[in-house]
Simulated scan of single mutants.
Amino acid sequence: MRRVFLITGIMAAGKSTVAQALAERLPRSAHVRGDAFRRMIVNGGAAMTPEGEDEALRQLRLRHRIAAGAADLFFAAGFTPIVQDVVLGAELERFAGLVRSRPLLVVVLAPDAAAVERRERDRAKTGYGAWTVAQLDGTLRRDTPRIRLWLDTSAQTPAETVEEILARAGEAEVPAG
């Protein structure tokens, strides 16, 4: 059955790895990497900071609109799109409203801060600059609505996380309307 997935969480939560592994499990799928749209900006990019400048928020919302549009186009073409991006706070419900295709499944990867710090140290790319893990984790847990499926993936492998997402897909589905 076709559906749209949104895999979100803080940086180094495992979004890219889990989204790719999930896409590889499905017969017709597309991995929509939200961060790729941010990297398309050559000059004038504004990164999100803890201060939350207006221009950075405008660009983040642009990135989310593009990702949601790409998801809808892939879905209309017969694919199951898996969108992966940092979508926190009020932006989570806003993003869910941008995706027109249904069913939409929202999965929040929420490993504990210690696991995120360990993953950040162990990976080749660096996500944290203006933010600390504790700050972004606080934003996730304090400001992000507890909608759909939240998973503590601190002790899970990506394969185990994918299995849990597939087993609990009904809990991730955003109600229509």
Rank of each mutant, 00 (worst) to 15 (best):
L109R: 08
I82G: 01
P81T: 00
R65K: 09
F79S: 01
E120W: 10
G138C: 11
L88S: 02
R28V: 02
G129K: 15
A76P: 06
R94C: 13
V106K: 03
V133E: 07
T17G: 06
P50F: 09
S101L: 03
R63Y: 06
L62Y: 10
H64P: 05
L92V: 05
D143P: 05
K125N: 15
P111G: 04
L57C: 15
F37M: 01
E120T: 11
A68K: 02
P81G: 06
E53S: 12
A68G: 03
A90I: 11
R33S: 10
G129L: 14
T132N: 14
A71N: 00
T80K: 05
I41T: 11
W131V: 11
A71C: 00
E93S: 09
A134I: 12
D122F: 12
R58T: 08
W131R: 11
H31A: 04
L105T: 11
R148W: 07
A114K: 10
V87Q: 07
E55N: 13
A115E: 04
A130R: 15
R141F: 08
R61S: 10
N43A: 15
T49W: 10
D85Q: 00
A77M: 04
M48H: 14
I66S: 02
V83C: 00
A114L: 08
R141G: 08
R146V: 07
R141Q: 10
H64F: 11
R123S: 09
H64V: 04
Q84I: 06
I147K: 09
A124S: 14
R146M: 08
R58L: 12
A68F: 06
E55L: 14
A47Y: 15
N43Q: 15
P111Q: 07
M48I: 13
F74P: 06
R39C: 12
A113I: 08
Q20W: 08
R61L: 10
L98T: 02
D72Y: 05
R39N: 13
